[in-house]
Design a protein around this nucleic acid. Structure first.
Lengths: 206, 206
DNA sequence: GATTCTTCTTGAACATTGTTCATTTTCGCG
DNA sequence: CGCGAAAATGAACAATGTTCAAGAAGAATC
């Protein structure tokens, strides 16, 4: 067993193909939705056989889950880039960044939140954990904004607040429903945070 | 052309079978999730051929959509039963009733919110409208609680608030994620409304 | 009630799509 | 080069949605 990166030709090709399959699958989900993702389409676009997809990902859910995993990672990266100088500003920033990200990658986020496993197989824990971690990004600014609050309470509040924002955005961007104009949705989110932060005593009443 | 209810034997059987198919489909979705719903299972359980299912509902989406339609109707009925004496109490009641209904029929609501049509076929307008109408049930109590606010603003606020509650509940009941204990979730929703109503000036600051 | 007509029902056949696996090909290594 | 391990292949299979020609059942007419 050699742990050194061998960079063998075989591994290179395998890796390249893996990336290619993921890129193609992601593209199809993003543009045509998860339901339009087909093994054969992916294999053909990647220039390989369906067997290779299975060889690399185990089953088709494996492809979807890997795309979903990368979606959370990209989301977390974006959210982590929100400036942390002012905690209140950071909270608004997180919500607006989530809105932007959701608007840019609506179908990818739907895949993340709506995909169900076959039968009763469990959803991978690491993905769930990453989603929870992303939602916990409101924790630090909330701690700073509410110095007297219990840490456990803040953890719960963080999850609640982010879930609320998620609900507003995911339903607001639901093009199935009567679409909310993007600028209106932005205002909706802001006003929501306004009211809630006032209610929490973080902002003064108007 | 005779408009009188003929109640022909044929129509009776047709109607009975229709109800039976829907009941079976609903049961499968509710207990095993939308992804486990199969035409053949439904047909067999209903004691008819797959062709009859198609004859009655056009395609399989038709079955799902009809179940979803009835789910919104049931939801609306439940929400409409919330007492309207005190507007503030009514708002809490709507949120808690939504929580109860969601907890009782989690898979049915997921089917409603997560089902996507094949290709680019549009989701039926009447269902979307019914969902919006259900979410608008917060409108009347909000008008009473905020007498000075613009009606259009209230309409938006109603949708925002209900969407937020929906986000908290749907993610909170997401057993894929680390499950939130039901009683904890109830408290989460209540505390959320507390803070938000304070922020709106409906309730006094603590 | 028999006959005809209409409509519905049936289920086998087909289409689509996920999955498997024996065979072939490719690659690393001596 | 030749051998063996690993991977790639794609035809076959399995599961599932969809169609439709033939038959059954009910309605309509006499």
């Amino acid at each position: 067993m050699n742990n050194v990166q061998e960079e063998s030709l075989r591994d290179q090709k395998k890796f390249r193909r893996r990336l290619q399959i993921l890129e193609i699958a992601r593209g199809i989900i993003a543009t045509k939705g998860l339901r339009s993702l087909k093994v054969r389409d992916v294999a053909e676009a990647a220039g390989c056989s369906v067997g290779s997809v299975y060889n690399e990902f185990g089953d088709f859910d494996g492809v979807i889950l890997t795309v979903n995993r990368e979606t959370v990672q990209a989301l977390t990266a974006r959210l982590s880039g929100v400036p942390a100088e002012d905690p209140v500003r950071q909270l608004y920033g997180l919500a607006e960044t989530y809105l932007d990200f959701f608007a840019e990658h609506a179908n990818l986020l739907r895949s993340l939140f709506e995909h169900r496993m076959e039968d009763d197989r469990p959803y991978p824990d690491d993905i769930l954990q990453m989603v929870m971690d992303a939602f916990a990004l409101m924790h630090p600014p909330l701690v700073r904004a509410l110095p007297d609050a219990d840490d456990v309470q803040i953890a719960l509040l963080s999850r609640t607040l982010f879930s609320a924002v998620h609900g507003i955005i995911s339903l607001g961007l639901e093009e199935r429903m009567v679409a909310v104009p993007p600028q209106m949705l932005r205002q909706q989110v802001t006003q929501f945070l306004d009211a809630h932060l006032v209610g929490l005593g973080v902002l003064p009443a108007r």
